[in-house]
Amino acid sequence: MVQDDFTPEHDRSASQSEGDSVSSVDAVTEPVEPAEEDIRTPRERAMEIFRNRSYEGESLRMGQVLRRVRETLGLTIEGISADTRLRKDYLMWIERMEVGDLPGGGYLSAILNTYARYLNLPEKEVIRVYTQECGGVEDVRHDAPVPKIGGIAPDRPKWPLAVAAVFVLGLLGAGAVGLSQFMRQEPELAPAPAVVAVNGGRESLFAGTEATQRPVPKNMPLELHAVRQGWLEVRGADGTIFRSRTMAAGESYFPRLDAGWTVSARDGGAFEWRVGDITVGPLGPEGAEVFSVSVDEQLPRAAEAAAPAMAANGGNKASR
């Protein structure tokens, strides 16, 4: 019988092929460990970025932190600008920490406060860290209230002012004595009788006087009324901010009178002065920014507008 030389080779090939198949099956069925899934919410990831001041191992300044938090929460500059009424370029400058392009006078603090509140971050910590990193500490000495820059200057000795005051008082006293001696040389003249005409047809006691000379009634209910949504800032005479936020249409604010308060707004036409139901006039031009408008300077105009109504009510407040 002839021996088949191909049989052993065939068996070896079959065995080798079978071994390769088993190895391939083992390679395919080898379990692969799944990647660890991040189950944290966007808010949790955003707060971690804020606490650590870092993102993917990179240290961040506060402006970069605000940007990363915003992106993690899925927010856009355009959306935040529409909701807060903050200008888009202001928000971009804040994130880039280009504060030199922002208006002065406490606007940095106000914008940071609004932006941090919108992102649900602690406002005071954001303002403190941001101003330290960008060199704006002098603009915001305290988180709130925010004084003017002039109030942060180091105290100066007051004795030169005292000496100058004494000198001026001395000059005034000497001038008064000399004037009295000069006036004594002239004989006193009896005042000529005057005839006062009484017009009973005047509609008010103030109708015969100039607007600037009319006495301002005490406790006049002068208010700033928002005719549409707009941002308003009210400051005291020392720079203290009493209001700095977006007011909704229909909201009113009663500033303190005869106290040197000022008002600023991004749209002067969004607010108007009122006394009760009487409209005195707009805060400023339509669509124009107004800065440091004096509250006290509105009092004569408000007294003139409210005079007829107050006279009809017997001198009481205008009806509301």
Results as ranks from 00 to 15, higher is better:
V177Y: 09
Y90R: 01
Y115K: 00
G105T: 10
T131K: 05
H10D: 14
I149L: 15
S81F: 13
A27M: 08
A311V: 02
R68V: 05
R117I: 01
V146T: 04
T279G: 15
V32D: 11
S109M: 06
T84G: 01
K218S: 14
G281E: 05
E58W: 10
A248Y: 02
M1F: 13
R96W: 02
V28T: 01
M220G: 01
G281R: 03
M220Q: 04
G260P: 03
D277H: 14
E36V: 03
K124L: 02
R156G: 07
P191E: 04
D11Q: 14
V196H: 14
H10Q: 12
E133S: 05
L257N: 11
Q132D: 09
F206E: 03
K124N: 14
R43W: 08
G200T: 06
L222P: 07
D11Y: 14
E33N: 09
D155A: 10
P285W: 13
P103W: 10
S81W: 12
V65R: 08
L86H: 03
D11G: 11
E304Q: 07
H10V: 10
E286W: 13
R235L: 10
R156L: 12
W273C: 07
V295N: 05
H225R: 10
G173M: 10
T262W: 13
A35N: 09
S292H: 10
T41V: 07
D83A: 11
M247Y: 08
F254D: 14
G287W: 12
V216C: 05
I39P: 15
Y115S: 01
V198T: 08
R274D: 15
T114F: 02
P122R: 00
H225N: 06
R43F: 08
M97F: 14
V275H: 02
D277M: 08
A318N: 02
T212S: 12
E37I: 12
E251A: 02
I127A: 00
Q185W: 13
D83N: 12
V99G: 13
H142R: 09
I241T: 12
L73M: 01
P42I: 00
D5P: 15
E71K: 09
L66Y: 08
M220K: 00
G281Y: 03
R301Q: 07
A174D: 00
E9Y: 12
F50Y: 15
R184S: 11
P255I: 01
V137W: 06
L112W: 11
L161C: 09
R274E: 15
R243G: 06
N113W: 06
Y253K: 12
R184L: 11
A192M: 04
S59A: 05
G276Y: 12
D26N: 04
